[in-house]
Write a protein that binds this DNA or RNA. Sequence first.
DNA 1: AAAAAATCACCCTTTAAGGGGGATTTTTTA
DNA 2: TAAAAAATCCCCCTTAAAGGGTGATTTTTT
Lengths: 210, 210
Amino acid sequence: MYSQPESRIVIIEDDQTIREGYAYLINHTSPYQVVATYPSFDAAKHKISKDQPDVIILDIQLPGTNGIDALPLLKKLLPQVYIIMLTVYETEKTILDALANGASGYFTKNTPTAKLIEAIKDVLNGGGPMSPDVAKTVILSLQKNQDSPLTKRETQILELITIGKDRGQIAKELFIEIETVKTHTKNIYTKLDVNSKAEAIQVAKDKRLV
Amino acid sequence: MYSQPESRIVIIEDDQTIREGYAYLINHTSPYQVVATYPSFDAAKHKISKDQPDVIILDIQLPGTNGIDALPLLKKLLPQVYIIMLTVYETEKTILDALANGASGYFTKNTPTAKLIEAIKDVLNGGGPMSPDVAKTVILSLQKNQDSPLTKRETQILELITIGKDRGQIAKELFIEIETVKTHTKNIYTKLDVNSKAEAIQVAKDKRLV
DNA sequence: AAAAAATCACCCTTTAAGGGGGATTTTTTA
DNA sequence: TAAAAAATCCCCCTTAAAGGGTGATTTTTT
């Protein structure tokens, strides 16, 4: 399945200059057509289904429903649509929230139109385009703490604890006795300076140990 | 801090043709210099510190220590180095493991040298370059289930449960009574068809509800 | 107006977790 | 090749936090 030249684009962005600027450039310098633009999700929600967009360019800071909250609603209206975020926000939380809620790509607003057009092509071909700084943020969010106080086995067990396994399940999975799991757990607690599973999970997430 | 033309590159890759091919092209068509190449991590480990690389291009399938296991060891030897994975593996687990272990970028082996050179520039400038299919995999791994059976509040509580909070902490955080948390938890268990916190966390992770 | 979601309360049971102490075997590293 | 570190296993004992049942009111959505 390859990118179709006639692919239909909708832009939802409250800044008129940016909205019309991107629309003009996409229409005149790419094989894609901008079939509609809207200043907000609320303005778009009753009409956008008829536009039959393949790709939506979506801002986050919008009057009324914001872009993050709009994401699942748009997906409900148009299950097959690809959504590319185009925003000034680049905090880790915002980026991860957008991706968690169904965005296919994420760019900051200083992105040149040429890159955005390339991104449209990428999503239509099943890719997940991001600007370099966004990609960096995503990678950092996945990165584990490089100098953990835990041994390999302890890390492994802590990982299983964080995904909800109990002693019995952990023992079975690692082919060891429950008592051994207990011993490791005790050592983990000592090293992390906690005394419960709940605290251990919190510290593990917090320090990115797993 | 901008990319320095004299930046030093090391390639660790067991296939001689690929290794020398990339080395030649980087040396002749980019401002970077390949200062050494190795067919394995084990061959590199005693010498690579002296090479003083800024960027390492690292394969995953290597004889002896594989690329994933080599990552933390390389980071220990050269804490400041950027590592770009270049591999045929593109399973979600492999990609996420590599990024979790400190890789700065990730490309599949059919990547043209020009793209790889761009990626070197990107990491030196603090970005996190990935090929489109890899980026897509990463995005998918972050994506939540779009049609969860849970309500907003239930999802919120399940999220807190998965990060190790107990009833008391959840109640405090959401400004509600412990009994309300209990009620929501019961409803969550019914909807997910489980009857313990541990199981709920496993289903939540499994179905990407949080 | 009806349905769904969110809130709070009381009773009762028990399991899985946590703490202490001791010991052997295997692996790594200096 | 010693010494240190990591991983393995066992027994005793205690209890906090979790789970199940039932019922009800208020708030928000549709």
